[in-house]
């Protein structure tokens, strides 16, 4: 156990992350990379990019509040150190996605109003369920909610977005690849640390299962809003066809070509992937997955 926990060190984080995949980057991407001109020039594409990025900022602000709040609830020094590194990761994510909003033309003075305008209320409810556990200093429930449910969702969402952006927007894809690398550590901590703790606290299981069910519902409601209310789908598709590199290779994720999917199919693919991952991850640590209600 001592060796296992010693990996949660600041030194390991420094060598892997700032001195590894983030070396030479600015706000998570290469300094010369820019948003594609068409995204900046076309009002519809720009608004969609802003709307999507706002959800990422909202999710990352929740993760920042949760990971920093869990530092003082952690039962050992190694976990405190890991959560301190995760806190910095999440703060970085908030910063890089907020910077993207500014790259998309949102003035710094308009940032908070823009976030308020576009933030999905279901995603806010999702965050509130988690932060309630964190506020009560409930370490086991907090880590399951943060590092398995929230990070598990982020892991799949970022991977899907990365697959979709790789050809059409290398700058944003580069930013996403750094956050995916961070998420690997976060989900690993969630499973490994809680996998050993949950056996010591079996009485926590029912409450954690209820939390997972509730968070999953708000997550599905967020996906439903995002995909079903996608504006002017056909026009968007035409505009995307003009983006440099589009069509050169299909955007493959989970065996599907994302560019060929209808919004409802994409929503189903993402929801199924995330829920399946929840079930597998929770099952590994001895928590029974609860099927959420359909929004």
């Amino acid at each position: 156990m001592a060796d296992f926990l010693s990996m949660y060190s600041i030194q390991h984080w420094l060598a892997s992350c700032p001195q590894g995949y983030l070396a030479g980057t600015e706000f998570g991407h290469a300094p010369h990379e820019r948003e594609p001109g068409l995204v900046l020039e076309d009002p519809l594409l720009r608004e969609q990019a802003i709307g999507t990025t706002v959800q990422l900022v909202v999710g990352e602000r929740c993760a920042l509040a949760a990971s920093s709040g869990l530092v003082n609830a952690a039962p050992d020094e190694a976990s405190k150190c890991f959560l301190a590194t995760q806190t910095l990761d999440e703060a970085r994510h908030v910063e890089v996605f907020s910077q993207r909003l500014q790259d998309l033309g949102v003035k710094r003075s308009e940032l908070e109003d823009t976030i308020r305008q576009f933030a999905n209320p279901n995603l806010v409810r999702f965050a509130e369920v988690l932060l309630e556990k964190v506020d009560r200093k409930d370490f086991v429930a907090g880590v399951v909610g943060q590092n398995i449910v929230l990070e598990g969702m982020a892991f799949s969402v970022f991977e899907m977005m990365h697959a979709g952006m790789q050809d059409v927007n290398p700058k944003f894809a580069h930013t996403l690849s750094g956050t995916i690398a961070d998420e690997r550590r976060h989900v690993g901590f969630g499973e490994n640390r809680i996998g050993s703790l949950i056996a010591q606290h079996p009485e926590k299981k029912p409450e954690i299962e209820r939390m997972q069910k509730e968070m999953s519902y708000w997550m599905l409601a967020t996906f439903a809003d995002s995909f079903r209310n996608s504006p002017a789908r056909e026009e968007m598709r035409k505009l995307r066809a003009n983006l440099s590199g589009y069509g050169s290779a299909p955007a493959k994720w989970q065996g599907a070509d994302l560019t060929a999917l209808e919004p409802a199919e994409m929503e189903r693919l993402l929801a199924d992937t995330v829920l399946k991952e929840f079930k597998v991850r929770l099952g590994r640590i001895g928590i029974e997955y609860q099927t959420p209600a359909q929004p």
């Binding site: 296992f4 990996m7 892997s16 690997r184 550590r185 989900v187 690993g188 901590f189």
Partner: peptide, 8 residues
């Protein structure tokens, strides 16, 4: 050992 996510 998976070093990226620190899993044994």
């Amino acid at each position: 050992y998976c070093m990226p996510c620190m899993s044994r």
